[in-house]
């Protein structure tokens, strides 16, 4: 998985994703301290991630391993919201 920070939302009515209640979030990949890299991607939100939260994103085929995205044209999903991250026994990120 990769780390990303939720920075916005994408609205699309004319689409072929056909997932009811699909929420597409604009995510900026970030480092372990939550600093953004400026490399954006769109991910389907499965866990109710809010603005400015650091999340875990799963990409490519495994993005379809959830009941909501089975056989759907989705290649990036938010699979978890990060509460705490530590590196070498030092907390580097806390929600």
């Amino acid at each position: 998985m990769i780390l990303g920070k939720v920075v916005g939302t994408i609205v699309s009515t004319n689409q072929n994703i056909n997932i009811k209640g699909a929420k597409l979030l604009l995510v900026d990949t970030c480092n372990t301290k939550g600093e953004q890299n400026g490399d954006f991607l769109i991910a389907l939100d499965l866990v109710g991630a809010g603005y400015d939260e650091v999340v875990m994103i799963s990409q490519s085929t495994s993005a379809r391993e959830t009941p909501m995205t089975k056989n759907k044209p989705i290649d990036a999903v938010i699979v978890g919201i990060i509460d705490v991250m530590d590196e070498f026994e030092k907390v580097v990120y806390k929600k």
Partner: peptide, 24 residues
């Protein structure tokens, strides 16, 4: 990736990139 082939139109098509939504 393989997600590009998961739409009705692109089933069985050897594509690895598909437009799946028009952004409003």
């Amino acid at each position: 990736g393989s997600g590009a082939r998961q739409t009705t139109l692109t089933k069985g098509v050897p594509t690895d990139a598909s437009v799946i939504a028009i952004v409003d």
